[in-house]
Structures are given as structure tokens and as C-alpha cells.
Design a protein around this nucleic acid. Structure first.
Length: 580
RNA sequence: GGGCCGGUAGCUUAGUCCGGUUAAAGCACCUGGCUCUUAACCAGGUGACCGGGGGUUCAAAUCCCCCCCGGCCCGCCA
């Protein structure tokens, strides 16, 4: 069995946290909250237990196109179920998670865009397209990566794609074992499945005919790889299960209803390891081979391959299909995610703006609901997460039973696997506020602002500093990238504005205060005083201050703002408010 | 043609499975506090015929039926 999975999570202290309450509290809670809904992952785990399925959770994707955030449904949804399984004591065996890269699938179309090794979505040029077109119909493991030349980059398309998922799974703290489908065929792991599908040919045909109109009389559930040209678009012409041999002819094929692939005409004989099962047979074969007891999958599979997969598992392979969960696809900025349209998000894109905990939280939300992921609106998600966290640490009361459920049951599963939520209570300054705190360039100024606003203890630990600075960095990235109202930008150049003599005098006096090392409050007061002393309207003088530094009429509280900026810069700007 | 999800305050949503006191939260907005101006924070407030219609019930956002609107998936391959 290949599915020995290391345990990354501290198992003990999170186990049914709710039960650690005193019995009085427990009773009270039972009464007042008897209808509290169940975390979906717990419900999934319960089904696994009740139906005596093995605690092995699988996911998997075909490595096509851009590895995007949607692919992570396959990883993270399952990860929560694994955690839920670990909390149960009625499970036989050690819970674990596998992810198959379905990398013997053929390259079916030339994508418009690919993910560069740097994680950028880039368009392929004409030459690269032609290069790829030559490989249509070959398994992804045999298609060269467009970036194979880059130092340290994987050689094959399959590995290029998988490397992102592997890296992202690690960043998100998911202990999932990656399995190459191609290697499984090569190692003979599918021998039994292939042999069974072919020896029970009539049964195979019966089942598939119920689901696929195109599967006719001569249907053979095996796709040999052409020994000459390497394409897997051949047509089987004879089966000899005894010898483990399938004859084929490499003829023309149509892929994705779009590309015409010319076969090389070669006639040959393949062993049962030199080809692959069609998807509808391959999926249940994976369940059988890997001993899968649970699998989340997207709604695209819900009607077709799942239904046929269940029947193939039972009627052809004679095994029980896993428990399952159909997840909705999410939208990106209100539309379907599409690499060619440019609205595709990767894990990296999102981790540029939010902590991994927040992204995990997104995937902990009800999988059955279609929801919109919008980076421009990501502060809402962050805010929701922060609320859950506040409730978890008793800093706030739950607003409803869902918040309570997420705080009490789910939150700890959102944290990094090497952290103990009971030990480390993160410092999490509010997101939009953090974005503005980021106007200060250096860490000390940022920490100082946070400390003064009460979002950081007077004497923070290194970890608390790290938490806070990370939040500021992420929020600042978000604000600047989207150029929204929280993107406070200090003018690099002096404003193209005229300030009258009194105003300039007041600026000059303000500069004295700043230069002398005044605190934010003192600077704030100095603004009032200098305005009055020079017979300026307070409101107008504030506006002039914002105009001078931000080029706008208003902005964050001026004292803290000026205090957060580099002192020499502020003094110089105040003394010489304009050029010429 | 079949299937899934959604339509609840200006916006984003929770609550629907398991019907039950004045339908909840965040954002936005308004008022007050922090000595006067503006990000934070604290206290409070305005704001919802719960998409429409019918039914079941003492009681419906919640259960049943029909309809309307929005989104997605499948009906090739994977």
C-alpha cells in the first residue's frame, strides 16, 4: 500500500474540543444549541465510519492548463475530512490522504496560457504552440514542459504542473501524498484492474453502454500507447488477456472535439502496462488500488463518471465505491474561472494577500455552495476569518450558530500544522487598517503605529511582531495592487500646488515639532496650534497637509501619518513644500 | 434535455438539513465618546413585505408543490 501518510497535526488537544467543557456547560450547550449543524467534514467522516470505509481520502486532477485555486478543492476539502477522521475512534486504520496526478492522460488541446515557473500566467507564443501541437495525444508525462530550459525546472509537462500543487500543498500545510498515475501503471499497480476490466469484457461493455452512447460493440476499455509515435489515441483491435496483450492500430483521433490528431498508422501490441484505462474505468480502478474510502469531486463528475464509476466498481471490479462529496465550482470575480479569459487565481495569487489560515478558511466553508472568490473583495473573507478567530479566543461572542461552530470546531484545523492554537494566539490587526499602516515603509514605524492603536501589546514577542508585520504586508499588497481606498500613497514628488505665506510658515513650525521627535498625538496637536497661530482655518490647514503629502484633500489622521513616515523626509517636505 | 447552487438590510452573506420568542453579522451610512479633523478603538442608531404564488401547521426564511430570475455542470473526452 502506497498510502502511508505522516501525521502532521497535533492530534490530542484538538480532539473534540467541545467535550473539554465541564459537564454543566456541556449540558447547557446541549439544550440551548441542540439544532447546531454539523461541520460538513464531520458529516463526511461519519459516513466513512458508519459505512466501514477505509479512512483513505483521495483527490486528483489531470494536469491540464493552469494549476489554479479550483484544483485545491481536491486537496483541501479532503484535508478537512482527514482531520475529522482523526478525531474519531471508530475508524479502522490510520487516516491519510492521497492525490493522484492523472498524468498518463493525453494532452488534448493546446492551452492559451500556462503558468511560468515564477507563477505568472503567461501566453504561449506561436513557436511554443507549434511545439506543443506536435505532442497532442501523448500522455502528459511525455510532453516536454514549455519551461524545460529554465534552470532547475522540470522536464515534463506533467511534472511542471504537479510541482505547483506539491509546493502549494506544503505551503498550506496539507500532508498529502502525491501519486503519479503513470508510475502506477508502470509499476503494475493497475494490473489487476486492467486485467479485470478486459477479462470481464462483456460486463464492462454492458456498464459503459448504459452511460456512453459512443461505446459500441467493439468497445475495449483500454487505450494502448503507440510504440512508434507515443500517442495514446490508438484503437484497440484485439485483446488477449491471458498473454496480457492488446493489439492496436495508431489511427486518427479527435481530441476535445477540437484537434484532429493524425495517427502514424503503426500496428502493434501493447502490454497491460503500456496504455491506460479510459477515465470512467480508471477512476474506480484508483479507488480499488489505493483503497479509497472517501473522495471529494467537482460537479463536473457528478452525473457522468461518478455514476458509471460506482457501477464499474461494483459490477466489474466487485468493490464498494468510496463515500463522496460533490463540491460546487467557485466563480472568480462573478464569472467562471478561465485561464484564457485571464481570470484565474492560483494559490500564490491569494497568498500574496492573505495568510494561509484565511485561505484554508475559504475551503472550510460549505463546499456545496457556489461562491464567488474576488481578490478585490478579499477583505470580507479576511474579516470573516478574524471574527471566527476572535470568537475562538473569547475576544468576541458568536453572532450565530455557524460562527460558533466554526470557532469551536473548525478554527483549530485552519491553523498551520506546526502551531498549537492553545499556545499561540495570533496578533491580527484589522485588515483594512493594516493596509493603511503599511504606508510607513519600515517595520519599526509599522509596529509603532500598531502599538499606539492598541493592536499590538506594549512589549510584543517576536512571534507577535511577525504576525502583525505579515498582516500589514499582505494588506498593503492588496491595497496597492487594487489601488483602492486603503492604498495610502505618499507623493514621491512635491505637489504641484501653491501654498500661501502663512501656510508655509505654519508648515515650517510644524517641521520644528516633527524634528524635535514629537509623538503622533503631539504632532496632531501641533497641527492645530500652528494653524491657529498663523490665523489659518484648522480644516483648511489639515487639507493642505494632506495635499502636501498625499495629493488629496483628506486622509488618515495626520499626526500618526506623519509620525509613521521617515522623519527627515517629513521635515524636508514641510520646509520646502513645493518646487520653484 | 438532465442535474446542482443561489435569490434574506445599500453591498457581501449567516440562518433553511432538524419549523418556534422582537430574522443575525460584517461592510457602508448616521449619532455620541476619545479636548478640537477624518484610518483604529468604544457605545448606540437608521435600514429586510426573507424572489413570487399556493399548500401543510397553533406556528414557515425554514417543510411540500408550481412559477420567475441569476450562475454553473453534464449530455464528446477527461
Amino acid at each position: 500500500m502506497r498510502t502511508t501518510v505522516r501525521r502532521y497535526y497535533p492530534k490530542v488537544q484538538t480532539k473534540h474540543r467541545v467535550r473539554s467543557m465541564s459537564s454543566d456547560e456541556e449540558n447547557a450547550s446541549d439544550i440551548s444549541d441542540s439544532a447546531t449543524s454539523e461541520f460538513w467534514a464531520d458529516e463526511s467522516a461519519r459516513r466513512v465510519a458508519e459505512n466501514d470505509r477505509p479512512p483513505v481520502v483521495k483527490g486528483g486532477v489531470s494536469p491540464s492548463g493552469v494549476p489554479h485555486i479550483g484544483n485545491f478543492n481536491e486537496v483541501l476539502r479532503g484535508a478537512f475530512v482527514v482531520r475529522a477522521l482523526e478525531c474519531r475512534d471508530d475508524i479502522a486504520g490510520e487516516p491519510g490522504q492521497v492525490f493522484t496526478s492523472d498524468d498518463r492522460d493525453p494532452l488534448r488541446r493546446v492551452p492559451d496560457t500556462v503558468l511560468s515557473p515564477e507563477g505568472e500566467v503567461v501566453e504561449l507564443d506561436a513557436e511554443e504552440r507549434d511545439e506543443l501541437r506536435a505532442h497532442l495525444g501523448k500522455p502528459y508525462v511525455d510532453v516536454p514542459s514549455p519551461f524545460a530550459d529554465a534552470a532547475g525546472a522540470p522536464d515534463t509537462w506533467a511534472e511542471h504542473f504537479a510541482s505547483f500543487l506539491r509546493e502549494d500543498a506544503e505551503r498550506l500545510g496539507v500532508p498529502v501524498e502525491f501519486v503519479s498515475n503513470d508510475e502506477m501503471y508502470e509499476d503494475g499497480d493497475f494490473d489487476q484492474s486492467v486485467r479485470t476490466a478486459l477479462s470481464e469484457l462483456e460486463r464492462s461493455r454492458d456498464v459503459i453502454a448504459r452511460h456512453q452512447r459512443t461505446a459500441g460493440e467493439g468497445y475495449v476499455p483500454f487505450m494502448p500507447i503507440c510504440a512508434e509515435c507515443g500517442r495514446i489515441t490508438t484503437t484497440p483491435t484485439g485483446v488477449n488477456v491471458e498473454d496480457g496483450a492488446v493489439d492496436y492500430v495508431c489511427d486518427d483521433a479527435q481530441l476535445a472535439g477540437e484537434y484532429e490528431v493524425e495517427g502514424c498508422g503503426h500496428r502493434g501490441t501493447a502490454t497491460l502496462r503500456e496504455g491506460k484505462l479510459p477515465w470512467r474505468f480508471e477512476w474506480p480502478a484508483q479507488w480499488w488500488t489505493l483503497g479509497v474510502g472517501f473522495e471529494p469531486f467537482g460537479k463536473d463528475h457528478a452525473e457522468g463518471s461518478w455514476e458509471s464509476g460506482v457501477e464499474i466498481a461494483r459490477e466489474v471490479y466487485g468493490v464498494e465505491p468510496p463515500e463522496h462529496l460533490v463540491y460546487e465550482f467557485f466563480l472568480v470575480d462573478g464569472g467562471k474561472m478561465s485561464a484564457s479569459e485571464g481570470n484565474v487565481y492560483t494559490v500564490s495569487d491569494i497568498l500574496r494577500y492573505v495568510e494561509p489560515e484565511v485561505l484554508r478558511y475559504f475551503f472550510a466553508l460549505d463546499p456545496k455552495k457556489q461562491r464567488d472568490l474576488s481578490l478585490a473583495e478579499i477583505h470580507h473573507l479576511v474579516n470573516d476569518f478574524d471574527r471566527i478567530e476572535d470568537v475562538r479566543y473569547g475576544r468576541d461572542e458568536p453572532a450565530d450558530s455557524t460562527e460558533r461552530l466554526y470557532a469551536e470546531r473548525v478554527y483549530d484545523d485552519l491553523r498551520a500544522p506546526d502551531e498549537d492554537p492553545a499556545e499561540h494566539e495570533p496578533v491580527r490587526p484589522p485588515y483594512t487598517f493594516s493596509a493603511m499602516v503599511g504606508v510607513a515603509g519600515d517595520d519599526e514605524a509599522r509596529l509603532d503605529t500598531l502599538r499606539r492603536s492598541g493592536h499590538l501589546p506594549e512589549d510584543p514577542t517576536e512571534t507577535q511582531k511577525r504576525d502583525a508585520l505579515r498582516r500589514v504586508e499582505l494588506a498593503r499588497n492588496w491595497a496597492l495592487d487594487h489601488d483602492n481606498e486603503y492604498a495610502v500613497r505618499v507623493l514621491d514628488d512635491k505637489p504641484d500646488a501653491d501654498f500661501d505665506a502663512d501656510t508655509r510658515t505654519a508648515f515650517d513650525e510644524l517641521a520644528d515639532a516633527v524634528e524635535s521627535g514629537a509623538s503622533p498625538d503631539e504632532i496632531q496637536n501641533a497641527v492645530f496650534e500652528t494653524a491657529r497661530q498663523n490665523d489659518l482655518g484648522v480644516g483648511g490647514f489639515f487639507s493642505d497637509g494632506y495635499r502636501l503629502f498625499l495629493g488629496q484633500e483628506s486622509g488618515p489622521k495626520l499626526g500618526p501619518l506623519l509620525s509613521a513616515l521617515d522623519r527627515e523626509f517629513v521635515v524636508e517636505r514641510l520646509r520646502q513644500p513645493s518646487d520653484g
